[in-house]
């Protein structure tokens, strides 16, 4: 089923959709654009996170580490190099560090891998703090890049498009198949001739590089960065939650978790500013109990009712 070439009828509408999204900042207020910035950033993060962690079952809490690496690259270099070069470097550093991490954590699995990645993020943060204190005698870094909300939006839109399209394409390729087999049973994967190490490490590095990219782009309007902001573990948890909420089995799932959660948070923090935490917490419990399988589960149940998809299913079978 995964290898089966599908019809390409949707490519034209998808391209039109992206073009429409790219033009949106012309119509919307800066506030709406910045709301969409969050949506796109988290959609990219959750999608790339789930492509590795969701399929292989190696749940990573190192998202914040890679986002932070991107942020710090911008903080260190934005005064000296053109923006495009800085972003490319952020992407590369994320990739290289993730390669190292991936290679050294191969022996770990399950919860041990989860907490290892969490500890790793904290270790990186502590080392950056220590370095800054001893080298620069301040923790504050300033980013004065003249990047408008629109520019950041367009950069993130490009990132999100590439990530989602890439993940969609890869998950239908041999790589995606290999990842799924690893997720099912790593031993079986190895026996069936998959170079599990290579696949895991490369995919981990590639998705981590995306996270660094997102961190770098977002930081363009932070003005001020310090290690506690850059390496904020909360981001790791948020991305994990969004992906779980969306459903991690399919390329669209995580993005479908990110969009409603960002919008829901925005709604709640405006409606119940003093009870946001309580309201959000209750929403989580309600979602788990009444929306099993996350947003993708909901989509599945709805699409079962839609005549068109039923038609398509019949055609496919």
């Amino acid at each position: 089923m995964a290898e089966k070439p599908a019809s390409r009828w949707w490519i034209a509408p998808a391209a039109a959709g992206v073009a429409f999204l790219a033009g949106l900042p012309l119509l919307l207020s800066a506030y709406t654009v910045s709301l969409l910035i969050s949506v796109l950033a988290y959609a990219s993060l959750a999608t790339s996170w789930a492509f590795f962690s969701g399929t292989t079952r190696y749940i990573s809490l190192a998202t914040a580490a890679f986002v932070g690496i991107g942020t710090y690259t911008v903080a260190l270099l934005s005064d000296h190099l053109p923006l495009a070069v800085v972003l490319a470097i952020a992407h590369m550093i994320g990739f290289v560090i993730a390669l190292g991490v991936g290679l050294s954590t191969l022996r770990l699995s399950g919860i041990y891998f989860v907490i290892f990645t969490f500890g790793l993020t904290e270790l990186i943060k502590q080392l950056v703090i220590w370095f800054e204190i001893n080298q620069t005698k301040t923790l504050a870094r300033y980013i004065f890049v003249n990047a408008s909300g629109t520019l950041i939006y367009e950069l993130l839109l490009a990132t999100a498009t590439i990530v989602i399209a890439g993940v969609w394409w890869l998950s239908r390729s041999r790589v995606g198949y290999a990842l799924r087999v690893i997720g099912e049973d790593e031993m079986v994967a190895r026996h069936s001739g998959i170079d599990t190490t290579r696949v895991k490490v490369l995919v981990f590095a590639a998705t981590s590089a995306v996270m660094s990219m997102v961190g770098a782009v977002l930081s363009l309007r932070y003005t001020y960065v310090d290690p506690n902001i850059a390496f904020n573990s909360l981001v790791s948890f948020q991305v994990l939650i969004m992906a779980l909420l969306g459903g991690i089995g399919r390329p669209w799932g995580p993005a479908l978790g990110a969009v409603p959660l960002v919008l829901l948070s925005e709604l709640l923090s405006g409606t119940f500013p003093h009870h946001f935490g309580i309201a959000l917490g209750i929403c989580f419990v309600v979602i788990v109990f009444f929306l099993p399988g996350g947003v993708m589960g909901l989509v599945d149940r709805w699409s079962a009712w839609l005549p068109r998809s039923a038609l398509r299913r019949r055609k496919e079978s």
Partner: peptide
């Protein structure tokens, strides 16, 4: 009043809002 949830990105957006 709005809650920026202790996050920079939210704070920027809410001031714009």
């Amino acid at each position: 009043d709005y809650d920026d949830r202790s996050q920079i990105e939210e704070a920027i957006r809410l001031v714009e809002r």
